[in-house]
Each structure stands twice: as C-alpha cells, then as structure tokens.
Design a protein around this nucleic acid. Structure first.
Length: 376
DNA sequence: AATCCGGGGGA
DNA sequence: TCCCCAGGATT
C-alpha cells in the first residue's frame, strides 16, 4: 500500500504534465506584487505573509511592508514594535517577530544574502519545509519541492488520495510527488504553476475541471470524485466566552499594557482585558446584568491590576474570534483613581500616541472609538 | 500526534 | 454558521 499512489505517474506522464501546466500558467497567472518584481527577500516576505492567509488579504500589507523595509538590512535594523504595527490585523504575529529575527540572522550568519540551499533556509527562524522550498525554487530556481494548501489539494485529487492528507503517510506520499514534479529544469515555473492551478482551477469548492490542463490525468476527475476530495479532519469546536476590557482614563491619557510573550498577541499593546463570568453569553445587557458587570470589573481591576477606578456607563461591544474562541468583548470606560498595575510594561498614552503603537485588533477598534468620542 | 496561533472572506 | 487560507513552532 505504501506509495502506490505516486507510481500512478511515470516520468513521461510527469514531463507532459509539467509542459501542460507551464503552458497554462503563461496565460493564466495573476500579476502579484511579489511576482512582478522578484528577489529573494521579496519572495521571503511574501511567503511568510501568505502562510495561512489569503492573497487578497496580503497584497496591501506586502506593499506597505516593502515600502518601509525594502531590504533585509532595513528589516534587520528595525524595531520590533514597528514591524508589529505593520503586521497589525494580519494575524499570526509570531510570523512578524520571527521574520525580523530571521533578517538579523541573515545579516549575521549569511552575510546579508538570503541563502539558496534548503538546509540553510531551514536554519532561519520562521522558515519551515514549505517556505524553504518556495524561496529556493522561486528565487533561485533550485529543484526544491513545495507542498501547501493549493498543491496539497491538487495532488490529492490527481492521485484520488482518499486517506488523511495531513497524516504522516499522506504527507510522505504528497511530498514525494512534489519532489518528482520539482525535479526538472524549470522548478520555479513548475512549482508556481502548480500552486496557481490549485488556487484558480482546482479550487476547494466548484473546481473548474473543464478548464484544467491536467484533467486527463486526474484520477479524482476521471472517477467524478473531485468534490469529495480531499478528506480533511474536523476542526476543533469553538468555545464561547465573554471578556471585559477597560479603557482607564487619567486626564487626557489612557492606560495600556504590552502583552507578554506568554500571552496571545505577544508584543502587541492592549487595554486591561480579562474574562468575566457574570455575564451570560448571549443575554442582553439589562440594567441588572450591567451592574453585575461593573462590579466584577471593578473588583478584578483592584484584585488583579492594583487599580481603583470609577466605571462609567459608556460601553461598546466587539465580537471577534480567535483560534477556537468566539469572544464577546465588552469594553468599558473608567476614570483612574489610584494604583498602578505591577505586571508587565504599562504606559499612559494619548489617543494620538495609540495610533503609533501596535495594538490588538480589538484594542484598535476601541482606540478608534475613544478617538471619535473625544473629537466629537 | 495534537494543539496553538488570527482574522477575514466565501458559500 | 461553517470552512478555508502560499504553515511553523511548541508540547
């Protein structure tokens, strides 16, 4: 049973398939900013941003990032907070911190040149098997394999692989096929064409098999199973929680804290925030519940934050999801009376200064709300 | 092998 | 609502 799928294609099949997708790619490829102007640094930055993130979401972030940090050296000399500010809203913020660390690594270990060997690329923080193969092949035309969301779906369908493609056995076979595809004279074009075909034609839902240059080789299409594959595991169920967040005012400044490396949104700034038990998940904020909320926030601020504050009635609600949590966030405004948090880094900042700090997405919404209240 | 890490868009 | 996205690091 081992590897029987990969042997579906012999070397002649593969040569034909490469030729077909390369031809298709010439006409169908999108003009993406990291393709129009290409160097190893731009490929690297784009690949990191694109991890688990759609092309559409990345494009504006990539443009801004390259404007501010056009070279590896510029990024290596940056402040982490400035990189995080540019990353704000994109998610998976460890990518930003690792990318900056990686830039320093490249300057110190590799003389400022992004390496072209996969094993050297793998030494760089934040670069794994896929990204190493992507940089090596796209930027240097090295025959390095890639396997990611688009090519995984494409390969699973080509092979009609009906096991779990994320399992060890599945990964081994799919990487083996990727390796064979990339073993050619033009791996940059072949790899990119495979990805683009997966993205534009071999889509998750409603794949455009009629327009696919590989349909005559696709076992899923030939057996009518393209909509059923790949077979992926179910996701972890979401948990609903209610959080509270307090914007504490002292004259014209607001209390913010930097989230620690142990927390979510590490390195980003946030208003004091914590889980509240006294509010029902979906209940409306009746006056009684609102009083309970005020009381719990007041007590928590005193107990866990060493701050006494007078809480106002102003309240805004933000709903968001993060990983497996669906969060209902209730943001309150309070007047500082005394005390100061002893945990982590604290700053008192104006709404103007908030604009320059990297904030959690919810904190940004609240900051905008404060700014609007203040100026109206 | 499982789990964590985000946020947005499409169906 | 649910599902997915040019994955990697940690446990």
């Amino acid at each position: 049973m081992a590897d029987e799928h990969v042997e579906e294609f012999d070397s002649r099949d593969l040569a034909q398939m490469r030729k077909k997708i390369a031809s298709w790619f010439r006409n169908a490829q999108r003009d993406l900013p990291w393709r129009v102007e290409r160097n190893a640094y731009r490929v690297w930055v784009s690949e990191i941003m694109l991890q688990q993130t759609t092309v559409q979401a990345v494009v504006p972030y990539f443009e801004r990032f390259m404007k501010q940090f056009p070279t590896v050296e510029a990024l290596a000399e940056s402040e982490e907070a400035d990189v995080l500010r540019l990353w704000e809203g994109l998610g998976y913020y460890s990518r930003a911190r690792n990318l900056r660390t990686g830039a320093i690594q490249v300057c110190e270990q590799f003389n400022g040149q992004v390496p072209k060997q996969v094993d050297q690329l793998l030494e760089i923080k934040g670069i794994g098997r896929y990204t190493a193969g992507a940089i090596a092949s796209f930027a240097y035309n090295q025959p390095a394999p890639i396997l990611e969301a688009n090519t995984l779906r494409l390969f699973v369908r080509l092979l009609a692989y009906d096991g779990d493609p994320k399992s060890a056995a599945g990964q081994r076979q799919l990487w083996a096929l990727a390796e064979r595809f990339a073993s050619c004279r033009n791996p940059a074009k072949v790899n990119e064409a495979l990805m683009e075909l997966g993205a534009l034609v071999c889509r998750v839902s409603a794949p455009q098999c009629d327009a696919c240059p590989l349909k005559s080789s696709c076992r899923a299409f030939l057996s009518g199973r393209q909509e059923e594959l790949p077979v992926l595991q179910k996701r972890i169920a979401v948990t609903r929680v209610v959080d509270a967040c307090v914007a504490i005012q002292r004259k014209n400044k607001w209390l913010v804290r930097q989230r620690t490396s142990e927390e979510r949104w590490a390195g980003m700034w946030d208003f004091p925030r914590f889980s509240v038990e006294s509010v029902d998940h979906d209940g409306k904020l009746t006056p009684a519940i609102s009083r309970r909320l005020h009381e719990e926030v007041r007590q928590t601020l005193l107990r866990d934050w060493n701050v006494t504050a007078e809480i106002h009635d102003d309240l805004m609600e933000v709903r968001h999801t993060v990983t497996r949590y669906r969060i209902r966030l209730l943001a309150l405004i309070a007047n500082w009376q005394e005390g100061s948090p002893s945990d982590g880094e604290i700053r008192w900042v104006t709404t103007q200064q908030l604009a320059e700090l990297p904030l959690s997405v919810t904190a940004r919404r609240i900051a905008d709300w404060l700014h609007e209240r203040h100026t109206s």
